[in-house]
Amino acid sequence: MLEDIDDNALDEVARVACGGDDYPVYRRGGELPKLLQQAGWDNVARYNNEPRRAWLTNQLRARRHVPGAIDAFVCRLADRREYVHRNEPLAAAEVTQLLNTILATEGFEIAHSQGRPIIRPYKPPTDQEQQTPDVILHVAMADLVRDADLATVLESRLNEARICDRNGAYASAVIMLGSLLEGVLLDAVKARMSGSEKPPERWTLHDLIETAHREKWIQADVRGFAGKLREYRNLVHPNAQVKIGHAPDRDTVSMCWPVINAALNDLAATAT
């Protein structure tokens, strides 16, 4: 599909792949031929020590008319398997978001089917998808979470949850939202209860929800629905899904978004 992608767009794809600056993953020049091989390319040229992005852009342009070559490369960039050895579990979601910004101008996007990236014609979000995550969210993560590094991680999880939701990975979306809630509440406990002797690793999500409600950081309605989100978050354990007898669907995720939004809004409103 991407054989006719614009030269500037192709250069931006190479920029994402090389990384550095504000991009999620930095790749050394010597790593780039392996990346192309992982995308299924044969007879990949050796890296010749020229500037990384220029070298990679030239490789992409040289094969842009080979059917499927650019598609395979872009899909590899968005593939979670590419980041396992880097211990960067959120990188695939961040890279996918960056690539989709580039591809949208070309009329394409990355989606995920059975856990693997695919290229498809761009599909504008439906009205429901546009409204679900953000309709009542009034606070930025960086304004709510005191630890800048943690705020970046949690913002990435919020973005990954959106990507999972949009592409039908509903269990993954719910798990991301549950972990996001846990991270935000734990940061609130550490910031607002400095005298607590309980170490961070001993706090469960249930403890955090109950404490946040008792301290009047979140309202009763958020507490009640957050408990249900906690149950779904536990689906990270496959046996938990077997036990409840069903898998999350779009309706499940649609119920979870307002919980997250309301919890974040409540925490922001009660911050001192």
Results as ranks from 00 to 15, higher is better:
D251I: 13
I163V: 07
Q38M: 13
I218S: 01
P117V: 05
L77E: 05
Y232V: 13
E109W: 00
R15K: 08
H65F: 06
F108Q: 04
R63K: 14
E50Q: 14
L99S: 01
M141V: 13
L60P: 09
A91Q: 09
A171C: 07
T101F: 00
A269H: 10
H138D: 03
A212K: 09
T96E: 04
D165W: 11
M193E: 15
N234G: 07
E50A: 11
D22E: 08
A104E: 13
N48T: 12
D71S: 10
P124I: 03
A140R: 10
Y170F: 15
A69C: 08
N48Q: 14
E106P: 01
I163G: 03
R120E: 15
L56Q: 11
T96F: 02
R120C: 08
Q241D: 07
K243V: 06
M1A: 04
R15W: 06
H213C: 06
I244Q: 15
P133M: 04
A148K: 10
S196K: 08
G68Y: 05
T252E: 10
L186M: 09
T211R: 12
Y170T: 02
R61T: 06
N234C: 07
A9Y: 04
N100I: 03
A220H: 12
V95G: 02
A17M: 05
A268G: 12
D207S: 13
R46L: 12
N87G: 13
E182C: 02
R233V: 13
R162K: 15
E155D: 11
L229E: 08
T101Y: 01
R63F: 02
S172Y: 01
V259D: 09
V242S: 12
L99R: 03
A212L: 07
A142Y: 04
L2H: 06
R230P: 04
L186N: 07
D7R: 13
L56A: 10
R28K: 12
V189Q: 11
W41Q: 14
Q131P: 00
G68Q: 07
H213G: 01
A188Y: 07
V222W: 01
Q241W: 00
T101D: 06
H246V: 00
R162I: 09
A262S: 12
V44S: 03
G68D: 09
G245K: 12
P258M: 04
R230Q: 14
I119W: 06
L36K: 08
D11N: 11
M255H: 10
W41V: 09
H112N: 07
A62Y: 08
V145L: 05
G183Q: 10
Y83G: 03
P133F: 05
P258Y: 05
A72S: 09
V13E: 01
I244M: 14
R53D: 03
G107R: 04
N8H: 06
Y122G: 00
L158V: 00
I163R: 09
E129D: 04
H138Q: 10
A247R: 14
M141S: 04
E88F: 08
T204A: 14
R146S: 11
A148L: 02
R27C: 10
D11A: 12
E94Q: 15
L60C: 08
L158N: 08
P121F: 06
A148G: 00
A72L: 03
V13H: 01
A54N: 08
A151I: 08
N8M: 02
D79I: 05
S196T: 15
L144S: 09
Y23K: 05
